[in-house]
Design a protein around this nucleic acid. Structure first.
Length: 613
DNA sequence: AAAAAAT
């Protein structure tokens, strides 16, 4: 019989995971780098006269490797000499203390992104407690972490240990962040040291701040180049790419808070919305550009945007950005336009999952990078109760109805308990939404066939609790931070276990518990093995019938053991024996290209042990 | 086979 889902959550097994220390350094040897050449001194002639930097530009390659690159020994804590140090370390000047913009758009009045009248938002009562963040800080203990790479900078325990600057520190307080999350503790020092980074961490664990803080801080330290004259082309200093429009919007909103009154301007550009308004925003000035790939390519081809001045590149949901659908566009943006090559810019890749083959592709964009894997808040997926039920295709609707009725009966619905239902197709999403509405369950839907307006309306309506059921395709699977999602239902299971991981990650966020229910039937056999293993590793109850399906050889294909590692995120592919045997960097795989993607099930089963096994 | 991402 079925117990209520609320009971299931309550009875969640919250066994703790043993804490694994950071592992020893291994991985790629540093490759030699040529000295940094500012964009305006490079041989390639720009389409327009680029701005002359008011400083020495991005850190030189040798500087970038202050944590033990090719030559320099460890230089922990040594201040950067190439950055103007006036105001460094908190000169008490508040906003703009590090690098005041010499011209351009800093004098424009900036809208308070915190949405309150208390522009400072610093009344003691509001930032002294954790309740506003909704983050369960107790769950932060015993988070397993793995780092690898050369000379990994040590993590910090408090924001105070990091010198991000007065203006940014003020915004951290305004955001009511009390202490850094695990991914922030590790990733921020790595980024501030100028190192490239590949990070596995769930969204909702503070990932956006983990790459935004170093970018904002780095831009302020580096100083703002004067605006170019005689051209309408804009030259952002940082680029953040994400796979969906809504995620780009979300990152933009967060980044605006972090950069409030720092003089750092954040602009977002994505498709489905009028380009003219985005162009106007860009022309008013941009330091950090948040974008989806298609619209950015459009802007680049129209020469509205140049990437010549890029100092920081961040790819969110990096494994999706490098999969079959996106890889050509990303390569075009990163390798075939005018962005400085790896080693000259600083590159950060973030995702909750990082299959080995994708890591190989990603290493093309990185230079002597550090790999970081951080467990979820509360360790792994302990905070999500995962259930899988055998539901024939024809019974799915009535079964869904049963679940929803049970929730309603338990008073678990409305604003505080949203339900996110994933389906496979856009048509299926529309059909299910319609059917739910007919049956008096207020639902809406989000998928790629809807207009951008409809998509945004649907998301707002869901978030507000107005329509507490959202039927979604995979457009909503990644990155979206929707508070109060209590239940994720995989009405149709995805074919890829990593997609499953991202989907269920929409609940159980920020240290809260959640429930994930999957409808499994004959058409999901290819997922049986990986799903059973994933649930087992997350200490979830695996039904016997699923174990039986999983053990059948004919169904055991798929990916075999999870490519992305056991409990979360993944493992540095450079540490695999095949890599170590090659004794080289990514060049060894130069001819590998993308062709093998999808075949990476074999080959490393026994070798893919994790630090927590 | 599907979804996402430019017009």
């Amino acid at each position: 019989m079925r117990s209520s889902w609320a009971d299931a959550v309550e009875n969640a097994n919250s066994g703790s995971v043993e804490n694994a220390g950071t592992s020893g350094a291994s991985g790629a040897s540093a490759t030699s780098k040529s000295a940094y050449v500012p964009p305006h001194l490079r041989s390639k002639q720009p389409t327009a006269e680029p701005p002359a930097p008011s400083h020495t530009g991005p850190p030189s390659a040798s500087d970038r490797f202050g944590y033990g690159g090719a030559s320099g020994g460890p230089r922990y804590g040594v201040p950067r000499s190439d950055y103007g140090r006036q105001g460094y370390g908190g000169g008490g000047r508040g906003a703009g203390g590090w690098g005041s913009r010499s011209g351009g758009w800093s004098r424009e009045r900036e809208v308070n992104p915190f949405g309150n009248d208390d522009a400072d938002g610093l009344a003691e009562s509001t930032f002294s407690e954790q309740e506003n963040t909704g983050i369960n800080f107790d769950a932060y203990e015993d988070i397993p972490v793995e780092t690898s790479g050369d000379n990994v900078p040590p993590p910090v325990n408090t924001f105070a240990e990091i010198d991000l600057g007065d203006a940014l520190n003020l915004n951290i307080r305004r955001c009511k962040y009390v202490k850094p999350t695990p991914v922030q503790r590790h990733a921020i020092p790595i980024s501030l040291a100028g190192r490239d980074l590949m990070a596995c961490a769930q969204t909702g664990s503070g990932k956006t701040a983990a790459f935004c803080f170093p970018i904002i801080s780095g831009i302020m330290r580096g100083g703002f180049p004067p605006r170019p004259r005689g051209t309408r082309t804009v030259f952002p200093l940082a680029l953040i790419l994400s796979p969906t429009r809504e995620l780009s919007m979300q990152i933009h909103e967060e980044a605006r808070k972090f950069s409030y009154q720092t003089g750092v301007k954040v602009v977002v550009a994505y498709g489905g919305a009028p380009i003219n308004q985005q162009l106007r925003e860009l022309e008013r000035g941009v330091d950090i550009l948040v974008a989806t790939p298609g619209r950015l390519v459009d802007l680049l081809e129209r020469a509205k945007v140049s990437l010549q001045m890029i100092r920081f590149l961040a790819l969110d949901e990096a494994d999706r950005m490098l999969d079959m659908g996106f890889e050509p566009q990303i390569r075009k943006i990163v390798e075939q336009m005018d962005m400085p090559p790896r080693g000259e810019r600083q590159t950060m890749l973030f995702s909750a999952t990082f299959p080995k083959e994708i890591q190989r592709l990603a290493s093309d964009f990185l230079s002597n990078y550090i790999f970081l894997a951080v467990g979820r808040v509360g360790s792994s997926t302990d905070l999500i109760v995962q259930r899988v039920e055998f539901v024939p295709e024809s019974d799915k609707r009535s079964h869904l109805m049963d679940l929803l009725h049970a929730q309603r009966a338990n008073g678990v619905h409305g604003k505080q308990a949203l339900t996110l239902v994933f389906v496979e197709t856009k048509k299926g999403a529309d059909a299910l939404e319609h059917w739910l509405c007919m049956n008096h369950f207020p639902a809406t839907t989000i998928h790629g066939d809807r207009t951008q307006q409809e998509r945004e309306l649907a998301l707002r309506s869901f978030k507000s609790g107005n329509t507490p059921i959202l039927v979604a395709t995979d457009v909503a699977a990644r990155g979206l931070d929707i508070p109060h999602v209590a239940h994720v239902i995989n009405f149709d299971l995805p074919n890829d276990i990593d997609d499953y991981v991202h989907r269920i990650g929409r609940t159980g966020r920020a240290g809260k518990t959640g429930l994930a229910t999957a409808f499994f039937n004959e058409s999901n056999m290819s997922l049986a093995k990986s799903l059973a293993e994933l649930m087992q590793e997350a200490n979830q109850e695996v039904p016997d019938w699923l174990t039986r399906y999983a053990s059948r050889a004919s169904y055991g294909g798929g990916k075999g053991r999870r490519s992305s590692g056991a409990r979360f995120g993944g493992r540095d592919y450079r540490r695999d024996s095949s890599y170590n045997r090659s004794g080289g960097g990514s060049d060894y795989y130069g001819g590998g290209g993308y062709g093998n993607y999808g075949n990476y099930g074999g080959g490393y089963g026994a070798g893919a042990t994790s630090a927590w096994d």
